[in-house]
């Protein structure tokens, strides 16, 4: 198990390198550069600026310089936030994203799984379904629309919660709900779908026929399979919470990392884009590993490292 995990993490390294390369290439191909300004810079000044950031070197050289930086743990200086390193910027922003993300993760799992189970078990009872689906539809609004609704409703009209900022536990509520909504809806549908798949399956019928109690059947066979489906979704879920948070961070003025996925690109802050992309990719590699491990644990039919054998 540990050898397998170590191997998978090692396999992640080339993935990260390829990700860095693709992002680097895409960034250099799209039009517009970091120092294109509304007030155009005179040529001699542009030369100084480009020299400072080695942008006057051939691209291949810049690429090697960048890779060398990654290997020594140096992600380079930001082109936008002068005097700050990308590493430093990410170190400031990452904990905030994690905090918001974990709150949203808890909400979406709790709400999603229970709504999904309820939906599956009570299938066919129209009022439940109408209510459930209305909730789902509400949660599936674009997050900026939902965020606007929550801000207007709970902030402006009811005055219960702050409409933004990042000060104290109260300010986490609205953004966490906004961020959790879409994943929760997704999880609910996934759970419902997989529970219904399993309920009619042979081994469940067999279990019932053998006289296993209904509660035990649900717990052991049905829930386990439902979790299996949700587990598959864990990687994308993490991704959704991280990159999805850029809208939520913008709407609620939260100083997290998500915003850089967009602003760093629009600023053409190459090192910062590469920095957030690498952090994101590393998280995905780790999450995928975690999913596979969980999967193996939940479904004994799948053996780890089978393809290696």
């Amino acid at each position: 198990m540990i050898r397998y995990a170590a191997l998978r993490l090692l396999q992640g390294v080339p993935v990260l390198l390829v990700v860095a390369t693709i992002t680097f290439a895409l960034l250099r191909v799209i039009p517009g550069g970091p120092f294109d300004r509304e007030k155009t810079l005179p040529p001699e000044i542009l030369r100084n600026v480009e020299a400072r950031y080695h942008l006057d070197e051939p691209v291949a050289r810049q690429y090697l310089r960048y890779l060398g930086g990654i290997l020594t743990g140096d992600l380079g200086p930001s082109y936008k936030y002068l005097g700050r390193d990308v590493t430093q910027i990410l170190a400031d922003a990452f904990p905030v994203s994690m905090e918001l993300g974990s709150a949203a993760l808890a909400i979406s799992l709790l709400f999603g799984v229970s709504a999904g189970l309820a939906g599956a078990v009570r299938r066919g009872r129209a009022p439940d379904r109408v209510l459930g689906m209305l909730a789902v539809a509400g949660m599936s609004l674009p997050s900026f629309v939902l965020g606007a609704g929550l801000i207007l409703g709970f902030g402006l009209w009811l005055g219960w919660l702050p409409a933004g900022l990042w000060e104290g536990p109260l300010s986490v509520v609205l953004p966490a709900i906004t961020l959790a909504a879409a994943p929760a809806a997704y999880i609910a549908r996934l759970t419902r779908s997989s529970v219904l798949d399993v309920i009619d399956m042979d081994f469940v019928r067999t279990a019932r026929a053998k006289g296993v109690s209904e509660a035990r059947v649900r717990r052991h066979h049905v829930l386990r399979n439902a979790l299996l489906a949700v587990t598959t979704y864990f990687g994308p879920l993490l991704a959704m919470l991280l990159t999805g948070s850029f809208v939520v961070e913008k709407v609620f003025a939260i100083p997290g990392m998500g915003r850089f996925f967009v602003t760093a690109v629009t600023n053409r802050d190459y090192p910062l884009v590469l920095g957030v992309t690498l952090v994101y990719a590393a998280l995905i590699v780790i999450a995928n590993l975690a999913v596979d491990l969980l999967y193996a644990w939940l479904d004994p039919r799948i053996r780890l490292g089978r393809s290696k054998a």
Partner: peptide, 17 residues
């Protein structure tokens, strides 16, 4: 504060923040 979106900032203003 660094609130990028003007309309939410306006609601914060209305909230007295």
């Amino acid at each position: 504060y660094m609130i990028e979106e003007g309309s939410p900032a306006l609601v914060l203003f209305e909230q007295g923040l």
